[in-house]
Design a protein around this nucleic acid. Structure first.
Lengths: 239, 239
DNA sequence: GCGCTCGAAGTCATCAGACCTTTCACCATG
DNA sequence: CATGGTGAAAGGTCTGATGACTTCGAGCGC
């Protein structure tokens, strides 16, 4: 048992679930909170830091410690780092989740996407076409950005923050970079762009069935690429 | 920003992604690791503790600190606590995710569930029937356990650990208790049991389509209950 | 009166040192 | 060969002091 600092985590968690602390609340000072939970500042800070990483708390030096909004997007953020740590074999499992979630998100998005969001989606795809039009020397980083933003926009437009957060986190940068390199090597970047365009058409028509099906096909293709090229590339850390 | 302890987290994360540390590796001792990352023991322990909570590291007093298996089930575990902190309004969003994932998991499970797992599923549902047969005074806690175990078994049998972990975590105990109270108040416990039985039949027949459809109906019903009774019950903390 | 500057108090962040608890391996003993 | 003890090593905890940052208000100049 990592006893003392777990006491801190459980204690703060219960203070939240009991309603003593709500979103935006300020926590007692370190000394006081430590005394109340029966731990010294060391373990107390460990527990608080863990909750900060989980997106539950937020510390501001010189000011105090506060409870975050506790919204799904906030709390699911650390998922991103975890996806990053997955070995390539497990990427297949994560992609399977994406394959299920994204078509549903697209269908929802088709029903409720706003004109502003549609315009934004069009802008993103136009950037993608501009990148591809330069010829064979495609800017891979920029292509990945386009892909990421397009999928993120749809996930957000679904209106379900949990969808958005999970989808956003599920495929980390490393896996995504590896994937796109494979796609590029096989000259499939134009296929991807065309699939994106087809999805956008369905969104513009507010047609959930077409949006769902086209997103399914799209992600399925991504999944195939991953399965086939899972062991091709070494990992190169970016950040 | 969150300077020193974030340095620790990023540092360890990069040691893992770079391959210097792999699953099961032992980390350098605290003093040495701290010296290497340029931090003292305090912040170092904060960062390590955060990664322990995220399921990335594991500390054993008197022995050392080790990298965990890094499997999806391990890393997605903290999701459970986060679901617990969600306000009832957001439970709807989490259930929407469940509604998409669980039918797919059931379909996969139908194709690959083992005889042992089928036997286990039967035992679980028999327990559920035993609970219901006693009359009107139903043991709500035991019913919740049966429901949890049944869904968890199917998620595991899907063969995708990411499915299992997300489904398992998505509806926390508090939300689940609230939900079941509503179901019970409306005398719908028998309906639930019958739906479970129908799903099991599909699994025994290894029929993915029927499994998917029946799980869809089942979770959809759960979702309806949640939407209708989201604001009925106060939160009562259990643990 | 108004605005600006500066300082004091409060708070989190970090460092340093000491001591406790647990684990494991080695070794002596039977 | 088995067994138990002993000690080194590692993480866990506590304490005190110092630094960094934010906030707020008093004082000052205009």
């Amino acid at each position: 048992m990592g006893s003392r600092s777990n006491v801190v985590i459980d204690g703060i968690r219960q203070m939240i679930t009991s309603g003593e602390l709500v979103a935006g609340s300020r926590l007692p000072v370190e000394r006081e909170l430590g005394a109340r939970l029966g731990v010294s500042r060391g373990p107390l800070r460990e527990g608080v830091r863990a909750l900060v990483v989980l997106g539950v708390l937020e510390t501001r030096q010189g000011d105090g410690t506060y409870v975050t909004s506790l919204e799904p997007g906030q709390l699911l953020e650390p998922l991103g780092m975890l996806a990053e740590l997955q070995s390539p074999e497990n990427s297949v499992h994560l992609l399977a989740v994406r394959r299920v979630l994204e078509p549903e998100a697209a269908a929802h998005a088709a029903l409720r996407i706003s004109d502003d969001e549609l315009a934004e989606a069009r802008r993103i795809l136009e950037r993608g076409e501009a990148i591809l039009s330069v010829g064979d020397d495609v800017d891979l980083e920029a292509t990945i950005d386009v892909d990421t933003e397009f999928h993120r926009l749809i996930a957000t437009a679904s209106g379900n923050p949990a969808f958005a957060a999970i989808i956003d986190a599920l495929v980390g940068r490393t896996a995504r970079a590896r994937l796109w390199r494979a796609i590029h090597q096989h000259g499939a970047v134009h296929d991807t762009q065309r699939e994106h365009r087809a999805i956008l058409d369905a969104l513009e028509a507010h047609d959930p069935d077409r949006a769902r099906i086209r997103m399914s096909v799209h992600v399925l293709g991504v999944e195939d690429y991953t399965e086939r090229h899972v062991d091709e590339q070494p990992v190169d850390d970016v950040d």
